[in-house]
Nucleic acid binder design. Structure first.
Length: 637
RNA sequence: GCUCACGUAGCUCAGUCGGUAGAGCACAUCCUUGGUAAGGAUGAGGUCACCGGUUCAAUCCCGGUCGUGAGCUCCA
């Protein structure tokens, strides 16, 4: 008999070879219905799994991450099965579960069109109804290769060949459909309830542009129709806060065919940006930064010196001046290096923190452009910190603290990633090892969770990235801290040490907003356009009830302007309701309705963006209230 | 850059199975002077992305270019 320890620490005795589903049946209740898989001694397995040894056993449902994974992965098999039934000569790629759904890649000579998705969905519904069990079987490597070769599944064969020697090669059969798969899966297709195919896209086989492009079908699935509907509604809602849509509606910026990837900032967007810059300057001054500005165009010799000519050329724009080659800067670092070099530095001067709101241009692939999230010209809130090697850790810590302080002002959620040495890199392995270790230590010491991005560092050094999330859950890198021992070398930077000799300083490159453009985009989506008062392009709108109240409205306008507020008065020949609706749509934080009563009492009837009508107060009281909100940078909600 | 889809008025979108176009909002003028999310009337506004081809005739069909969207690759 085997001992099985359940989640509540109760122990059951079962015969060797007992299937998990047998235990489930015995337990009954909700679990029997909802369990999609089980975790046995830490491994996720099918419910058909037979127990061979003592085990701790935990059931997983759709509520658990592992359960969602199994559910979606099983869904992707149905997708593949349906496609194989409907179309001949389709070869299978891979079909994993992903956040919020699943996909499957197909190699098919025709291209799928949106109508195909409906057909495929219908076929999937049939397969679900037929309630095929997912049956697992294992094959020796050679047999597996022969089997999938006989099916014409070349991609699967390639996958098998690349599997490590010690791995068990398993397949799942589901009706007449067989797929190479590690599993686990649901007990049967009938367990799947609500499935929807969402979209079609191309995707390179194994993610490499050297490989053929397959057709990827994305979908999602839930154990209940209501959950699927809720998800679809959430997607719809998220689209409403897309920064491209809001940017247009709130007249913040525009993108034009005349300059793809080069954003145009409108007056409203410029207010937002200027506020961000002002906040940035005050925080950086406080944190001991100086501010500089370096040229947008510099000569070829310098870009060769910096390494960009060799390592970054395909992303750069070039021009000729008086027959000589110049490049438009894709990064601000070389300019900062040149300023550092304009004079001798003592070790007593370090660290020197040089900030620059620097406009850079990068030739990004056309297909990657995305509103203001991904553009070809943008302003980085850059800074380069020149320091003694002994100061590195402390400075990295300070940068992270400043970043967290600034992000917290906006109430962002973010996660950290540590990127290591890329293939195309400058510098010795030792240097990379030392630099990467420093960054890792700082993260560990601060107890910050992070994921590691192997090979994703800059060509001159490893980095810590801060990722923020957009309205539909895509992550965008904003802040980054990069350690660099290369640039000081290339530019022969030095400081005079205690010993009177020249030494090499270390450099940190860092941005906090990342780029003003991307940060604004994230900000727009984060607040759904309803900015905190300190950022709102128009903070207050004065709304006179009729012509008779224009004089008083203008006096209120003037008082607020005098107090430094961004205020307008709507003197148009329209009704109050009309003006309020428009201000509401424009997400103006405060509307001040003024009529006979208010003029009489020298008051304003305050309407708040969210709360609505909150009653009348004295003009002076309103001013001090809103000013308080601005200085504390209060976040709405 | 790659795959697929899309491109009609300032915006959101109809439409024409080939005979040069329409709505709502916005805009302008007039009427209305109205107390917390759209008062009414009239009017102006489009080389149907651009360039070629097929055709008696192209916004519609075909090809190319540019741009946009979703994803891949790449990145702040």
């Amino acid at each position: 008999m085997l001992k099985v320890t359940l989640r509540d620490d109760s122990v059951r005795e079962v015969a060797r070879g007992t299937r998990i589903v047998d235990i489930l049946n015995e337990l009954g209740g909700r679990l029997k219905k909802e369990a999609v898989a089980a975790v046995v001694n830490g491994l996720v397995v099918d419910v058909a799994h037979e127990l061979k040894e003592d085990a701790t056993l935990r059931f997983v449902t759709f509520e658990d991450d592992e359960g969602q994974d199994v559910y979606r992965h099983s869904s992707s098999h149905i997708l593949a099965a349906a496609v194989k039934r409907l179309y001949s000569d389709v070869k299978l790629g891979i079909g994993p579960s992903i956040k919020d759904g699943f996909y499957y890649d197909f190699d098919y000579s025709e291209s799928f069109v949106p109508e195909d998705l409906l057909k495929i969905e219908a076929e999937m519904a049939k397969i679900i109804k037929e309630d095929h069990p997912y049956e697992r079987f294992e094959l020796p490597r050679q047999e597996a290769i022969e089997y999938f070769t006989s099916l014409g599944e070349d991609y699967k064969v390639e996958l098998i060949r690349d599997l490590p020697d010690d791995v068990v090669i398993s397949c799942y059969r589901c009706g007449d459909f067989v797929d190479l798969c590690a599993g686990p899966h649901l007990a049967s297709t009938g367990k799947l309830k609500a499935i929807k195919l969402l979209n079609l896209a191309g995707a390179y086989w194994r993610g490499s542009e050297m490989n053929p492009m397959l057709q990827r079908i994305y979908g999602t699935s839930f154990p209940k129709k209501s959950l699927l509907d809720a998800y679809l509604t959430r997607l719809e809602e998220a689209k409403k806060r897309d920064h491209r849509k809001l940017g247009k509606e709130l007249d913040l910026f525009s993108m034009q065919d005349e300059g793809p990837g080069f954003p145009f900032l409108h007056p409203n967007g410029m207010i937002l940006r200027n506020e961000l810059e002002a906040y940035w300057r005050s925080e950086h001054q406080r944190a001991g930064y100086d501010e500089i500005k370096t040229p947008v165009i510099l000569n070829r010799v310098m870009w060769e010196q910096s390494g960009h000519w060799d390592h970054y050329q395909e992303n750069m724009y070039f021009t000729k001046i008086d027959e000589l080659d110049y490049a438009v800067k894709p990064m601000n670092c070389p300019g900062s290096m040149l300023i550092y070099k304009t004079k001798m530095h003592s070790y007593r001067d370090l660290p020197i923190r040089m900030g620059e709101l620097g406009l850079v241009h990068r030739h990004e692939l056309s297909g990657t452009l995305h509103g203001m999230m991904r553009v070809r010209s943008f302003t980085q809130d850059d800074a380069h910190i020149f320091m003694l090697p002994t100061q590195i850790k402390e400075e990295v810590k300070k940068v992270i603290a400043l970043t967290e302080k600034i992000y917290n002002t906006f109430g962002f959620d973010y996660h950290l990633e540590l990127s290591t040495r890329p293939e195309k890199a400058m510098g010795s392995d030792e240097m990379w090892e030392v630099a990467t270790t420093v960054l890792r230590e700082v993260l560990d010491e601060r107890g910050l969770p992070f994921v590691i991005n192997e090979g994703d560092g800059a060509f001159y050094g490893p980095k810590i990235d801060f990722h923020l999330t957009d309205s539909i859950g895509r992550n965008w890198q904003c802040g980054t801290v990069q350690l660099d021992f290369q640039m000081p070398e290339k530019f022969d930077l030095s400081y005079v040490g205690e010993d009177g000799q020249k030494h090499r300083p270390a450099v940190i490159h860092r941005v906090i907003y990342g780029s003003l453009e991307r940060f604004m985009a994230v900000l727009i989506e984060h607040f759904a356009g309803a900015f905190p008062v300190w950022l709102a392009p128009r903070q207050v709108l004065v709304i006179p009830i009729s012509d008779k109240h224009h004089v008083y409205a203008l006096s209120v306008l003037e008082a607020l302007q005098e107090a430094g507020l961004r205020v307008e008065a709507d003197l148009r020949n329209e009704k109050v309701g009309y003006k309020i609706r428009e201000a509401q749509v424009q997400k103006t934080p405060y509307m001040l309705v003024v009529g006979d009563k208010e003029a009489e009492a020298q008051e304003v009837a305050v309407r708040e963006r969210v709360a609505g009508d909150v009653g009348s107060i004295k003009v002076a009281d309103f001013i001090s209230k809103i000013q308080d909100e601005i200085t504390t940078k209060a976040v709405p909600g």
